[in-house]
Design a protein around this nucleic acid. Sequence first.
DNA 1: AAGTGGTCTAGACCACATT
DNA 2: ATGTGGTCTAGACCACTTC
Lengths: 238, 238
Amino acid sequence: MKKYEEIYTDIKGKIINGDYTATEQLPFEKDLCEAYNTSKMTVKRALDLLVDEGLIIKRRGSGTFVKDLSQKEIQRITNSAQLDGFTANHSNNGHKVTSKILAFEVIQADDIVQDKLNLKPGSFVYNIHRVRCVDGKPAIIEKTAIPIERAPGLERKHLEASLYDYIKDELGLTIQSAHRRITVKKADEDEARHLEVDVNDPIGVTEQITYLDTGDTIEFGVTKHRADSFVSETIVNN
Amino acid sequence: MKKYEEIYTDIKGKIINGDYTATEQLPFEKDLCEAYNTSKMTVKRALDLLVDEGLIIKRRGSGTFVKDLSQKEIQRITNSAQLDGFTANHSNNGHKVTSKILAFEVIQADDIVQDKLNLKPGSFVYNIHRVRCVDGKPAIIEKTAIPIERAPGLERKHLEASLYDYIKDELGLTIQSAHRRITVKKADEDEARHLEVDVNDPIGVTEQITYLDTGDTIEFGVTKHRADSFVSETIVNN
DNA sequence: AAGTGGTCTAGACCACATT
DNA sequence: ATGTGGTCTAGACCACTTC
């Protein structure tokens, strides 16, 4: 493990278990350098990770402090996993994820998909339309477009399990990032039927463009969530 | 301006105006060091900002590349402002923001507010309840709790303009970060009346804890958005 | 084997806050 | 004046990709 990760993990642990409490001042960087027997840049990097994560703040001239976080807020920050995909996200919590496949076809990308995936006009994509269930209850409707040349050999059986696993394990590709956009709408008849809610019930919509570590787009997805299972959490630093 | 910011700004500009196009390889860090007459760590830092922002990706052993972004996606990334508050966010776009104050009082924090702001039991907070309008049309309902001891002298007139301006300019405090949570709900009668929508119409809800650069909480706010004016965009890196 | 980005160092100097 | 964190350097060595 990298040195800055060790320091990061160690200090984070001390915040979680209460060795460092809310608003408490951490040791100075100088002292942390001695304690961990390392250089200033490395300590700074470890602390910056904690700043990004929302656990601490730094003030030039004064020092470094734990944020004024409630215990619940610390838990929330600690348990967040962002880029794992629907299957992993829920099965890690002991739930069973299943998929009902409504459509699986190869079509020409429409204007929106073409733009989002930055494809040439007339490009073909897999068009996948699934209802994802958690413990047998429908949770989301997912429409996914994947450029055919980036996922050759995609089959129906992959859709019943995890698309992300197929991309990672079978294609050997690495997902690097996702650009997300969240909106809200009323359920239309289709959505209501599939999600087992009433027409006009509120729905959380996540649009997502997913990028590989090559910089190429791999997926454009629109996900429609039942209101009762939709939450999105982020931390914004200045 | 800091050197890494200059390099960051320069390269970002070249991506925006098309000097570097989608999927194109950037010069090697070594060459950028020469070009900008600086050291490796500084170039690396500039590039890492672009990675965080979602514009480029780096691959050890291979090089640095512009992501496969559509022109629209580049615009979206470039125009995002996160921590500015409602007033600034909309008036910068040439719109007029007004506020209707529904409540302004000092009360004891309830359990939720107390937890979110990490206050001691029995603490007092300003309780502010406003409808915010853009160009005369209601856009959001905002309930805000502010610990009284952190914002002494808050008056009604500050609420008609921007609360953030008051915090920044008159109290001389600096906002450092915000922890956000987005959910979805049906409009109840109150919400429908204030937002001028129908009962049970969908509503986007943003809960936000705002922190100062001291690490202290300054605000807990719950914001209810009309569906037609609600969007939230984020970039998730691995 | 050569070249890429990633980590880490030991230290200089700077900007800012406190005393 | 002292001490904090922030920036930057010049270079060593490492992990990984490509040839």
